[in-house]
Design a protein around this nucleic acid. Structure first.
Lengths: 226, 226
DNA sequence: CAACAAAAAATCGTCGACGATTTTCGATTA
DNA sequence: TAATCGAAAATCGTCGACGATTTTTTGTTG
C-alpha cells in the first residue's frame, strides 16, 4: 500500500486535467509497477475511495485502459488486469520487433550528434550496471534506451504503438531471470545498434534491431516454458 | 439521420453486453461512415438520447475511443473527432507499411489453399470493380483484402494494431481521388502479392507488401498537397 | 450599425443512489 | 464433517442531479 494521501489531495486542485486522465495514468502505473498483478480484479469502489473521488471517473479511466489492452471487462463482474499467455507474448514480440525495426530505419538517416551522445550515455550506464550485476538499475535503463530510439525517430504514432506493445508485454513477465551475463550480451547488441545508427545505414539498422528484439523473444519464451 | 428506433429498443434486451461496448462500436461506425466528420464535436446528451440511455455509458464509450485515437477530449468542452494532418498521416502510413510487411512475412510460410483461394476471389472481385470503374464496390473490397491477409496471418495483436492504424487513417481521407486507372494499377499489385504469398517467400512478400503501402502513401499525400 | 458586456442557456465533469447480478457466508442436511 | 442450499452482503451497470465552465443570446454603448 503506497501513500495516496498526497496524491488524492493534490488531485482536487488540478482543474486543468480531468480526474479520469489522472486516474487512468495512475492505474497504468500501478499495473506497470506490479501493484496490480495480471489476473487481479480491479476494485472500483476501493480505487475511488483511495483517490477520494466517485466511481464515475474510475470507470471511465478503466474503459480507456481496456482499449489500451491493459484491462478487460466481464459483464457484471467488473474489470480485471489482462493476462498474457506465451502465444500472445510471442505475437507481441514479433510486433515489437517490426516496430523497433521501423524506428531504426527511420532514425538512421536523421540521427544527430546529440542523439548519438544520448544513446552512448545510456549504453555506458548499462555497461556499468551490467558489470555490477545491478538488475534494478539495468532494467529501467534498457527501457529508456529503446524508448529514446523511438523518440529520436520522431514518428509519434510509431512511438505510441511501441509503448502500447511494451506495456502489454509487461503483463507477461514471468520473472524473466536476468543474469549478469545476459546483461552484458544484451548491451553488446545495444552498442552495435548505436554503431550502425552512427553509420546512417537504415537497412542494416533495421535488420539488426529486429534481430535484437527477436533474440529477447527467444530468451523470454524459453524461460517461460521451463 | 438514420433510424435508431430499432437499435435503441433492441439495446434494452441485451444483458450479455454492456451499453458502453455497444455504443462504443456504434460511434466508431459513425465515424468510419462519415456521419461524424473529423473535427466534429461529439454531443454526449444527443447521443444518449438517440440510444435511449444516460450520459454515463456514452462517456465511457468515448473514453475508449479516445484511447483508440479516434476522439480527443478538451477539458470542459467535451469530445471531438480527431483530425489528422499530412504529417501524422505520413507517420501512420509508415507504421502501416511495417505492420503489413510483418503480416506478409508471417503469412507466406503458412498460407493454405483456402487462404489463397480467398485472396484470389477478392482480387477477381476487385478486377471486376476496376473494369467497371465502380469505386463504391472497390473500396470495401480493398479493405477486406488487406484485412484478410492480416487475419490469415494469425497474429491477433498485429491485426489489432493494423486495424487501429487503418481506422486512424480514415480521419485523414481528403477525398483521395480514385480513378479507374489507379484501381487497375493497385489491383495488379494485389495480384503480385497473392503470387508471392503462393510462392511462400516471406522476405519477398514482406518487401512487396511494404512497398505496396508506401506507394499508396505517396499517392494520397500528393493528392492532399494539391 | 459594429463592438463590447452582461445575462441566459447549454454543456461538462462529477457525484450519490438504485435495481440487478454476483459473491460470500452461515444454516441445513446427508 | 463435507456438500448443498438460501439468505445477506458486496459489487456492477446505469441513472438523474448539481455546481462549474463554456457558449450563445441579449442588451448596451460608442
Amino acid at each position: 500500500m503506497t501513500s495516496f494521501a498526497t496524491t488524492a489531495e493534490s488531485l482536487r486542485f488540478r482543474k486543468e486535467t480531468s480526474l479520469t486522465v489522472i486516474i487512468r495514468e495512475e492505474v497504468a502505473r500501478m499495473i506497470e509497477a506490479g501493484e496490480l498483478l495480471p489476473g487481479a480484479w480491479v476494485n472500483e469502489a476501493e480505487l475511488a475511495q483511495r483517490f477520494g473521488v466517485s466511481r464515475g471517473p474510475v470507470r471511465e479511466a478503466c474503459r480507456g485502459l481496456e482499449q489500451a489492452g491493459l484491462l478487460h471487462f466481464v459483464v457484471n463482474r467488473g474489470a480485471f488486469v489482462r493476462q498474457i499467455d506465451a502465444t500472445e507474448a510471442a505475437e507481441l514480440y514479433d510486433l515489437r520487433s517490426a516496430l523497433f525495426a521501423l524506428a531504426g530505419r527511420t532514425l538512421a538517416p536523421i540521427i544527430t550528434k546529440d542523439g548519438l551522445a544520448q544513446l552512448d550515455g545510456l549504453t555506458r550506464a548499462m555497461e556499468e550496471a551490467a558489470r555490477l550485476g545491478d538488475l534494478e538499475a539495468y532494467y529501467p535503463l534498457n527501457l529508456q534506451f529503446h524508448r529514446a530510439i523511438l523518440e529520436l525517430g520522431g514518428n509519434k504514432r510509431l512511438l505510441n504503438a511501441y509503448q502500447n506493445c511494451v506495456r502489454e508485454l509487461h503483463l507477461f513477465r514471468r520473472g524473466g531471470l536476468v543474469t549478469a551475463e545476459r546483461m552484458t550480451k544484451s548491451n553488446a547488441e545495444h552498442q552495435a545498434i548505436v554503431d550502425v545508427l552512427r553509420s546512417r545505414d537504415g537497412d542494416k539498422a533495421s535488420r539488426l534491431m529486429e534481430a535484437h528484439v527477436l533474440r529477447a523473444k527467444k530468451r523470454i519464451l524459453k524461460d517461460a516454458a521451463s
